[in-house]
Each structure stands twice: as structure tokens, then as C-alpha cells.
């Protein structure tokens, strides 16, 4: 700050990228874009699965996942839904967890667990459809 009077940089140029996290609008926009997709995907999934797999039997579940439209829909739901929930939970963690070590561990888990689950679930849908 001592040489700010002699600096050629504008005040905006000096503060840019020095916010709490260096960025922010990316997640803000992603959360809204994914929510628009989920407005369609989530109700479709609940009603479609509830009608098709009402007794929760194995064969009914396999039948439902084997339909190409359902397979594509549920892969989209898992990918977009888990991304949406990871952003949302990140916001909750940075709001409520003050201890830096705990916050860092939770942020790591919140990045890792949805990614692992999404890859596992998408692979499971492909396995049901294309088999071994």
C-alpha cells in the first residue's frame, strides 16, 4: 500500500482476484444452470422409477435401467445432481466450519465422495446395459 500513490494500476486492478476465494461467480452460475436441468430431471426420475419399480424388485429395477431413455436420463441426473449438491455442500461447509483443518478435510471429502459415487453409479448403469 505504501507505493500506491506512485502505482500506475487502477484501484479495481489492484483488488481483482483478491477476494475471499479469488473467484465466486463460476459456482454461483453453475449452481443455477444445474438447477434448471434438475427441475426437469429430478421429478421425471421420481415419478418414472416409482411407477416402474413400485415393489423395488431386482428385475423391475434392471428393466427400468435397461431402457435407453432411462439410462441416459439417470446418467444425466447423477452427473448434474452430484455436481449441484457438491457446490451446495461446499457453501454450507465454508459458512459453518470455522476450524481450518476440519474445513479442509470436509472440503476434500465433499470434492471426492460425489466424484467417486458419480463415476461408480454411471459405470453401474453402463454395466447393466452392456453387461460383461
Amino acid at each position: 500500500m505504501s507505493n500506491s500513490e506512485r502505482s500506475m494500476r487502477t484501484p479495481l486492478g489492484r483488488v481483482r482476484a483478491h477476494g475471499a476465494s479469488g473467484e465466486g461467480t463460476g459456482h454461483f452460475i453453475a449452481q443455477r444452470v444445474t438447477s434448471i436441468a434438475l427441475v426437469l430431471l429430478a421429478p421425471w426420475f421420481v415419478v418414472s422409477v416409482a411407477l416402474a419399480v413400485r415393489d423395488a424388485s431386482y428385475l423391475a429395477a434392471i428393466d427400468w435401467i435397461s431402457d435407453p431413455v432411462n439410462a441416459v436420463g439417470v446418467i444425466l441426473l447423477v452427473a448434474i445432481g452430484l455436481y449441484h449438491m457438491s457446490i451446495g455442500m461446499q457453501e454450507v461447509i465454508v459458512d459453518y466450519i470455522l476450524k481450518p483443518s476440519t474445513k479442509m478435510i470436509l472440503l476434500f471429502l465433499n470434492a471426492a465422495v460425489p466424484l467417486v459415487l458419480a463415476v461408480g453409479a454411471i459405470f453401474a448403469v453402463l454395466l447393466v446395459n452392456f453387461g460383461v
Binding site: M85, G88, M89, L117, A121, A124, V125
Partner: peptide, 24 residues
């Protein structure tokens, strides 16, 4: 909105487990 969002985190984990169990 926050409470249900955190709750749905658990529901999404169950959805992934359901799909993986069906493949197993």
C-alpha cells in the same frame, strides 16, 4: 432450503448405491 439440500445429499448417495447394487 439448506436443511433439505443437506438431506438430499444423503438421498443422492442412496441413489448411487441403488444403481451400483443393481449392477452387482
Amino acid at each position: 432450503h439448506r436443511v433439505t439440500g443437506v438431506g438430499l445429499y444423503g438421498a443422492a448417495i442412496c441413489l448411487a448405491i441403488w444403481l451400483i447394487a443393481a449392477a452387482l
